[in-house]
Structure formats: C-alpha cells, structure tokens
C-alpha cells in the first residue's frame, strides 16, 4: 500500500474529505521527519519508536570495480517495532 492508497482508505474510514485526510497524513509524517532531522527520537506507543544511530566513516570498495572509496560518517534512523504491533503481526504466523 502506498501513500495515496492510504489517504483513500483513511478518508473513507474517518469520514474526512480527501484533502483533509491527505493533510493529516502529510503532517503526521512531517512531524516525525522534523524530529529525526533535529536528532530527536520518536515514540508512538503500540506502533513503534525511531531513534538515530550514528555510524563511523570507513574505507570501502566499489564491489564492481574493486576501487577504494571513502565512506563518510552517517546517521540512519532505526525503527523498533512496538509491542502491540509486534504481537499482532506474529499472531498471524502462529495461527497459520
């Protein structure tokens, strides 16, 4: 499911007009993006949490050419699935 399909389903279930449904979804993900860009974590109970992990730079190789490349230090968001979501997803497997 992509963002426009999510907007569609959300609009139907909430009774919101499409542009309002789109507004809420955009602002929801913008708020999380801004927090992460500011180096803050995000915690949505029952869904999951995001934190920033910092990685050192290293000298790697281009796997195609074997050429050495300098990989700069970087930060990446790390998602930890929340308890409720984790259990709901797992229940589907054990039920099979």
């Amino acid at each position: 499911m992509n963002k426009s399909q999510l907007i569609e389903v959300f609009s139907k279930r909430s009774g919101l007009k499409r542009y309002n449904a789109e507004f809420i979804i955009k602002e929801f993900f913008n708020a999380m993006t801004d927090a992460l860009a500011n180096g803050e974590g995000v915690e949505i109970r029952g869904f999951g949490s995001f934190s920033i992990r910092e990685y050192d730079g290293y000298v790697g190789r281009n796997p195609k050419t074997g050429e050495q490349v300098e990989v700069a230090p970087k930060k990446l968001p790390f998602f930890k699935v929340g308890k409720e979501l984790k259990e709901r997803v797992m229940d589907k497997v054990t039920a099979q």
């Binding site: 499911m1 992509n2 959300f10 809420i24 997803v89 589907k92």
Partner: peptide, 29 residues
C-alpha cells in the same frame, strides 16, 4: 477529533501490516 483521526490512521497502518502488506510512504520510508 484530531486524536481520533490519528488513532484511526495508526489502526489502518497496523491492520495492513498485520495482513502482510507493506506500507510505502514516499519521502519517509
């Protein structure tokens, strides 16, 4: 209203994942 909307949105996302569907939010992940 806002609190209800946010809960509804999260519930939809969780239901889809539960059903084994991936969720692609362009610009986010």
């Amino acid at each position: 209203e806002v609190a209800n909307y946010v809960e509804t949105l999260l519930e939809i996302i969780k239901e889809k994942l539960e059903a084994g569907e991936d969720i692609l939010i362009s610009g986010f992940g």
